[in-house]
Computed example of a mutant assay.
Amino acid sequence: MKTVVFIPARYASTRYPGKPLVELTGASGEKKSLIQRSWEAACAVPGIDAVYVLTDDDRIRAAAEGFGAKVLMTSSQARNGTERCAEGVAQLPETPEVVVNLQGDAPLTPAWFVSDLVAHMQANPDAQMATPVLLTDAETLANFVTDRKEGRVGGTTAVMRADGTAIYFSKEVLPYVGSLESPPQVWHHVGCYAYRPEALTAYAGWDEGPLEKAEGLEQLRFLENGWPVACVAVEGKGRVFWELNNPVDVARIEGVLKKEGIA
């Protein structure tokens, strides 16, 4: 086993309780839960050795096993998906070279996003942790700005150095967008991570820092402890990427499923 994908999922979401079991209607009219659509997105990635749903909730476990997923039960003490991944990798019969964390609220993640992330880890053996970033198109950036004006968190943005390592991640729209007519480059952080197993071990031993607590962004713990985070630029190829953060996002995601012909 070289590469595994973990899909962390918890029922008690602060912004959207029960989110993994929310049903989304696809192009065929079939309803599937958010966690099933995220699992199907993970299974579509070529070259992955195994896919697991990680949860501490029996309702999510039962639903996942019902559509054929492998499930690892993690503790209720896990504060975020990365901590859940650290618990999950310890349960595997064989330690993989790369662990991918595909967020359970990101069913629109294209397979090539994950493939590009894994390829970066394979080409850079010193990289301990990496995450994809996507240059926002006009529609996504407008959604970001609208959500913030209306008091919602619509997504996460990334600010990077010239070498592609992260300076900061935020739920605010960074850098500042003065006008949608002539905006700066804004990079959308894609909710997916790749780690070396030793990076997960280190992460689990650190306390939450003030920036992680303020933003509610788990990846900031690496930056606060001086570990570089590689940002891998990926291409949308016409696919609108959006995560399910709020109830309003259901219609947005269903619109993309229908547009892309995803059943």
Rank of each mutant, 00 (worst) to 15 (best):
A42T: 04
G18V: 01
P183V: 06
V177T: 12
K2T: 14
G216M: 10
G104M: 01
K32P: 09
E150L: 06
G88W: 05
V100Y: 01
F222P: 06
H188N: 11
G81W: 02
Y193K: 08
P93G: 15
G88T: 01
A166N: 06
P228H: 07
L180Y: 13
V45P: 00
S115C: 07
A50W: 03
L211Y: 13
A194L: 10
H120R: 04
A50L: 07
Y52S: 01
E235L: 07
P247I: 10
G238Y: 00
R84S: 14
S38N: 11
V45F: 02
I253A: 06
Y195L: 04
E83N: 03
M160Q: 13
P46T: 13
P197T: 08
A119Y: 11
W206T: 06
T109S: 09
R84G: 10
A63Q: 09
P210G: 03
P93C: 10
G255K: 10
H188T: 05
T157L: 05
G164I: 08
T109P: 01
L180W: 14
L134S: 02
I167M: 14
T95D: 05
M160E: 12
D49S: 13
P247E: 14
S33R: 05
L220Q: 02
C85L: 10
Q36H: 12
S28Q: 13
D137Q: 00
G151K: 04
Y203Q: 07
K171W: 09
P132C: 02
D147A: 15
G205M: 07
R252W: 15
G154I: 05
G155Y: 01
S182Y: 01
V229A: 07
N101L: 04
K2M: 12
K19S: 02
T131W: 08
R148I: 08
T82Y: 12
C85M: 12
F222L: 15
E235M: 03
V190R: 04
F6K: 03
V248A: 15
V89L: 02
Q77W: 09
S170W: 11
R10T: 13
S76R: 14
L34S: 03
L24M: 10
C85S: 03
A166P: 10
V114G: 08
S115V: 09
R15D: 00
E235S: 11
A62Q: 14
T95A: 13
D49L: 11
V114K: 00
G155A: 02
F67R: 11
A78V: 14
D56A: 14
T82G: 00
R221A: 12
Q185M: 12
K171D: 00
G154K: 02
K32I: 06
I60T: 04
K2F: 08
L135H: 01
T136D: 11
L141Q: 06
W39H: 13
Y168S: 10
G155Q: 03
L220N: 11
L117C: 07
P107V: 08
V232I: 15
Y16L: 09
P46R: 15
E87T: 09
H189W: 03
L200E: 07
E212R: 10
V71N: 03
G155W: 01
P125W: 10
T25H: 11
V99E: 04
R152N: 08
E139G: 00
